[in-house]
Amino acid sequence: MTESDYIARWVAPGARVLDLGCGDGSLLKHLWRARQAPGYGVEFDDAHVLACIRNDVNVLQMNLEDGLSAFRDGSFDCVILSETLQAIHHTEALMREMLRVGREVIVSFPNFGHWQARLQVALGRMPVSTELPYRWYDTPNVHLCTLADFEDFCRGLGVTILERLVLRNGVPVGTLPNLLGRYALYRCARG
C-alpha cells in the first residue's frame, strides 16, 4: 500500500478535503477516485500548480505561510498536510489554522528519530536517506522532527491524536516506532 492508500483509509467517503502543499495533485485525484472525496489543493510552486490543472484537480496558488484566510471555519471534513510539515516556517500558526478550517487534520512527515538518522548524526553527519534525500545545504526542510517531538507539539497545542500509523518501507511498524519507523502519519482533531 502506498502512503496515499493509507491516507485514503482515513478519509470518509464523500468527505470535503483540503490538501496543503498538494504537489501535482495526485493525492487529491486518488482521494476522488478511491473515496469520491472532492477537494482543493493549495500549492505555491508554478510547475506543481500546472501539474494539478493537467490532473484536473482544483488548485489554489497560495503561500501556506500566509495562513488559510481564504477558508471559513470548519469548512472541511479533513485537512491534509502530507510531507510538507518539515518545510513550513510558521509551523504552529499553520497547525492552528488547519484545526480552524478542518474538523480533522492528517499530518505526515519523515521521522527524524529513525535509527539511521540518529546514527548518521552520532557519526557526525547530517542524515541523508530515501525519506530525507537532501543534503544540509540544499534542503527545503527547516523543521524536522521525531515522532516524540510531534506528539509533544500536539499536546502543547491541545490537539488530540486520534490515530497514528508508522511506516517502514510502506509497511506498518509495531515495535519501537520512533526508532524503526521511517515515516509517520497522524490523524488529529481539536482537543
Binding site: R16, V49, N58, V59, L60, Q61, M62, S75
Partner: peptide
Amino acid sequence: RGIVSYLE
C-alpha cells in the same frame, strides 16, 4: 463550495 482553481 464552488469549483475553482486560482493561479497567481
